[in-house]
Amino acid sequence: MIARMARLLLRGVADLGRNPLAQALTLCAVTLTAFLAGLFLLLLVNLNQALLSAGGDFVFQVYWAPGTPEDALRDQWARLDALPGFQAKTTYTPAQALDELGLALGGEAKAIGGLTGGALPPTAVVSLRAPEADPAVFVQQTLSALQGLPGVADIHYSALQVDLARSWQRFARTVLWPLIGLLGFTAALVVGNTVRLSLAGRRDEVDILRLVGAGRWYIQLPLLVGGAVQGLAGGALALGLLALAHLALADLAATPPLNMTFAFLPLGHCLALAGGMALAGALASLVALRE
């Protein structure tokens, strides 16, 4: 029984060799479809990674109310080091701020100092690196921590990164993943239809097998295996092409001004691509026989 099964499975593969030209054409179509789908996925995965995974560096400018006692300030500034993701900080007392301003403005500093010296707030500029998790949450947490410090009057931060990540996530959820699903479905349809057509050429063979008393599985199993093998081979070839494309793209991405690392598809995606093609091929062989 098992030997017979194995023989039928092998026959499915061997039968592919009977019509090399037709099989080669089918394989080409399957490979190209899988390659295009894979390329789209590859670009998307990297875009996604660039936008989401690097939580990014955030710079918070914290202003205290003018007249906050200096020793309270020093105490709070010391505590900034304990913020999660802390990288660096620069602090200015009103006098230091004035000096900085003076340096920047050159000779006119004295005049300005005379006018506004007392009005400059104590300031801290804190650089933080968001952890891998959602940067928006990180920003919220940091904000509330900073606002909790006594005497803090105002906080500015660079919001661009957060907004981008947020809107990308929304876009991905509402548009992109459904689109990917549709693309996968289309690829499966193309592959399935191609395999089905290549089986139409073997209609006579199937009819004859039926007429000499072949049972359902005797006919179906080899075709199923043949379809699956075609899908799998096409998927594997497409992954090979993708690897080549990835090499070229990674080189391109690594050169200035992009300086990006360009990742290959994660293993799960690769398996899903090859498996999906194999499944489409196998299902197509089932459908082809039912017609």
Partner: peptide
């Protein structure tokens, strides 16, 4: 298929591969 294992047919148009 069970019936056809008892009954062989020679077709007018041969039906060979």
């Amino acid at each position: 298929p069970l019936l056809r294992r008892q009954v062989s047919v020679v077709f007018q148009d041969f039906r060979i591969l």
